[in-house]
């Protein structure tokens, strides 16, 4: 097997697995930049995956080929709505943000499985008829070398994810909104003094994380799993959290980390079919994202610092 063939297997798989991680990690970035820790990303992905699959199964006759995209919008909306619970608890009612995030994870799994049993009378949904499917992107896939590697046998969602990362970078670093978002995450009292509504900005941060987490779950469900059950989302949300930290709370960093983690995940799945990897136990690939994140946090690969006020409820007037 030549290098070219190997890359033609690895790159599309990497991008496929990276897409949900990118969306969700971006969501986490928005939330943490505003000063709210979001451990609930996993739960938001569960809700997103659940919504997308149910919507897809229900409305496939109405929307035809556009069903997965419309389902994604539904997942986005429901994800944002669900994250409102986290926002109310941790911003308005000053709950411990980590605990509230844990509650979100528990609640999402419970609600989604409860509703699956309620709607379908069984523990797992049917397989969707129209998911995101492999395509050759027109024009771009005709470019020599780059075309077959990056733009053939691939998924639109991966490129939408990368596009979103660039947009997120622009929003957070180049707009007034982004400046305010970062300000309430670093020093809410100073921001408040300058007339920024800390509560409102933090609500935005959490709601955006819910929307993007929902999309992440929806992409995973419709591109990878194709149905929804108790094991559909198993750790992707936490891996996205890791990607956000490994990417140092920066949208493009988070994207890079997500692609790298997607690479590790895809290798652990297809590794046995590749000549130079078949003898390496895939446990190393499975734990790589988590171990690397811990190492990154200890500062061996450049220090990763969270936004200063991340995790601290803002109480007006207290110092």
């Amino acid at each position: 097997m030549g290098i070219m063939e190997i890359l033609m297997i690895i790159i599309p798989t990497t991008l496929l697995w990276a897409a949900p991680l990118i969306f969700t990690a971006l969501g986490g970035t928005f939330s943490e930049r505003s000063g709210v820790v979001n451990i609930g990303l996993e739960g938001l992905m569960v809700i997103g995956a659940f919504t997308a699959i149910v919507f897809n199964l229900t409305f496939v006759d109405v929307f035809g080929a556009w069903t997965p995209w419309v389902s994604l919008l539904a997942a986005m909306a429901v994800g944002a709505l669900f994250s409102l619970i986290h926002a109310v608890a941790s911003i308005t009612f000053r709950a411990n943000q980590t605990v509230s995030g844990v509650a979100i994870n528990l609640l999402a799994a419970g609600v989604a499985l409860f509703l699956v049993k309620y709607i379908y009378g069984k523990g797992q949904t049917d397989i969707i008829q129209r998911g995101f499917s492999k395509i050759d992107i027109p024009i771009l896939s005709d470019i020599p070398i780059i075309g077959p590697l990056f733009f053939s046998n691939t998924y639109y969602t991966s490129f939408v994810a990368i596009f979103f990362a660039v947009v997120a970078w622009y929003v957070i670093y180049k707009t007034k909104f982004g400046l305010r978002l970062r300000a309430v995450g670093e020093h809410p009292m100073a921001a408040d003094t300058m007339g920024i509504n800390v509560t409102k900005m933090r609500y935005y941060g959490v709601l955006i994380s819910g929307a993007l987490g929902g999309i992440g779950g929806g992409v995973y469900a419709q591109a990878i799993s194709s149905d929804f059950g108790h094991a559909t989302i198993s750790g992707q949300g936490f891996m996205a959290l890791a990607a956000m930290i490994f990417g140092k709370w920066h949208p493009l960093g988070a994207m890079g980390a997500a692609i790298f983690f997607g690479f590790a995940q895809s290798l652990s799945i297809i590794g046995s079919s590749l000549p130079f990897l078949e003898n390496i136990p895939n446990v190393y690939l499975l734990i790589a994202p988590y171990v690397l994140t811990i190492i990154a946090l200890t500062g061996f690969i450049g220090r990763a610092d969270a936004p200063k006020a991340s995790g601290v409820p803002y109480i007006k007037g207290s110092r």
């Binding site: 109310v88 509650a103 528990l106 419970g110 409860f114």
Partner: peptide, 22 residues
């Protein structure tokens, strides 16, 4: 009744304790 109902109740209890300020 699906047994996940209990998971929902447990999650809600955690949530309400966390938001004990309310």
């Amino acid at each position: 009744v699906p047994n996940e109902l209990v998971d929902i109740i447990i999650a809600l209890i955690v949530f309400f304790v966390a938001a004990s300020y309310m």
